[in-house]
Computed example of a mutant assay.
Amino acid sequence: MQRLYSEIPNRVVTASNRVDYAYRDTDGRDGEIPLVLLQHFRGNLDYWDPALIDALSGSRRVITFDNVGVGGTSGATPDTVGQMARDAIAFVGALGLDEVDLLGFSIGSFVAQEIAFHRPALVRRLVLASSAPKGAAGMHGWSPDVIGAIGGPQTTPEQYLGVFFAPSQASQQAGRGVLGRMSSRNGNRDAMTDWATREAQYDAVCAWGVPDHSALQRLAALRMPVFVANGDSDPMILPHYSHLLGGLIPHARVKIYPDAAHGFLFQHHTEFAADVTDFLG
C-alpha cells in the first residue's frame, strides 16, 4: 500500500563525508531504479508539495533529502554548485544506490546537471524543472523583485505566491492550495533553513550565472535522456532557458506549462507527475 508523503518519517543516514543526511523515502520494490529529488533555493523536505510526491510515488520509489547544511542535514552549506553535487553523490552512495533517476528543481536542477557531468554512470534519466545552464547570459543573480520576495530573512505567503505562481486568479488559487498541503504535516517536520544556507546558496547561484559561452558547450556531454520543464511565467528562471537547454542537450525534450510560474510542478502536479512517469518509463 502506498504511503502518503505527509506521513513518511524523517530518516538519517551518515555518508562517507561524515555528514548526517536527513531524508524521506517512499520505499519500493527490489531492483527498482529510484527517483531522487533535489530541492529549490532555501527549501527543505517540507517544501515539496505532498500531492506531487504522492503522484510520483504511485509507480516508483521516490527519495527526497536535505543536502549538506540544509534543513536537518549536518555541516555547512557549500557556496558552489560543484560541491553541492559531490555532497549529493555522497548521499546517494550512503544509500547503496548504483543508479538513479534525478529530478532537480531550481538550484536543485543546477546540482542535478553537475551530478550528471561528474558521475554520468550514476544517472539513468534526468529531469530539470525551472532550470538554466551554467554560463547563460542574464542568469547572474535574480531580479531585485524576486530576491526581495524570497531572499529576505522571512518570506510571506503573498511573496511566495508572487514568485512561484502566475498572477492569474486560477494560478494564485492553486498556489494557496499548495501552501495548505505543505503545512498539512502535523509532526516530525524538517528543520528550517538558516541565513548561512541562504547566503551560500545565493553565492552558488550567482557563480553559476556568470556569463561563460564555453560552459554552454559542455551540455553536449550529457548523453542520457533529459526532460526540461518550466512554467510560461516564471520570473525567477525565465522559460527561454528551458529552450536553450533543450537545444544544447542531445537527447532532450522540453515542455512549458501554461499559466504557471516557478512552482509549475506543484500547480500542475497531476500533469507533471504523469509526464515525468511517462518519460522515466
Score class of each variant (00 low, 15 high):
Gln2His: 13
Gln2Lys: 14
Gln2Ala: 07
Leu4Gln: 14
Tyr5Asp: 05
Ser6Phe: 08
Glu7Arg: 12
Val12Gly: 01
Val12Gln: 09
Thr14Tyr: 02
Ala15Pro: 09
Ser16Trp: 06
Arg18Pro: 00
Asp20Gln: 13
Ala22Phe: 02
Tyr23Ala: 05
Arg24Pro: 00
Thr26Lys: 03
Arg29Ser: 12
Gly31Lys: 04
Leu37Gly: 08
Leu38Lys: 05
Gln39Cys: 10
His40Trp: 11
Phe41Pro: 00
Phe41Tyr: 15
Leu45Pro: 03
Tyr47Ala: 10
Ala51Glu: 09
Ala51Thr: 03
Leu52Arg: 06
Ile53Met: 13
Ile53Ala: 08
Ala55Cys: 12
Leu56Val: 13
Gly58Ser: 14
Thr64Ala: 15
Phe65Glu: 10
Gly69Thr: 07
Gly69Ser: 07
Val70Phe: 00
Gly71Leu: 01
Gly72Val: 06
Thr73Ile: 10
Ser74His: 06
Gly75Glu: 08
Ala76Val: 13
Thr77Asp: 06
Pro78Arg: 09
Pro78Leu: 08
Val81Leu: 09
Val81Arg: 08
Gly82Ser: 13
Gln83Asp: 14
Met84His: 05
Ala88Cys: 14
Ile89Lys: 06
Phe91Tyr: 11
Val92Asn: 02
Gly93Ser: 10
Gly96Asn: 11
Asp101Gly: 08
Ile107Tyr: 01
Phe110His: 09
Phe110Thr: 00
Val111Leu: 06
Ala116Gly: 10
His118Met: 14
His118Ala: 15
Leu122Arg: 05
Leu122Ile: 07
Ala129Thr: 12
Ser131Cys: 09
Ala132Phe: 04
Pro133Trp: 04
Lys134Asp: 12
Gly135His: 03
Ala136Arg: 00
Trp142Ile: 03
Gly152Leu: 08
Thr155Ile: 06
Thr156Lys: 10
Thr156Glu: 06
Glu158Asn: 09
Glu158Ser: 04
Tyr160Pro: 01
Leu161Glu: 00
Phe164Asp: 01
Ala174His: 00
Ala174Phe: 02
Leu179His: 09
Ser184Glu: 14
Arg185Pro: 07
Arg185His: 13
Asn188Gln: 15
Asp190Tyr: 02
Asp190Thr: 05
Ala191Asn: 11
Met192Ile: 10
Trp195Asp: 13
Ala200Phe: 08
Ala200Trp: 00
Gln201Asp: 06
Ala207Pro: 06
Gly209Leu: 05
Ala215Ile: 08
Arg218Asn: 07
Leu219Gly: 07
Ala220His: 15
Ala220Cys: 12
Val226Thr: 15
Asn230Val: 01
Asn230Leu: 03
Asp232Asn: 13
Met236Tyr: 03
Ile237Met: 02
Leu238Arg: 11
Leu244Thr: 01
Gly246Ser: 04
Lys255Ala: 10
Tyr257Pro: 08
Ala261Ser: 15
Phe264Gln: 06
Leu265Asp: 02
His269Arg: 12
Glu271Cys: 03
Glu271Lys: 14
Phe272Leu: 13
Ala273Gln: 11
Ala274Asn: 14
Asp278Thr: 14
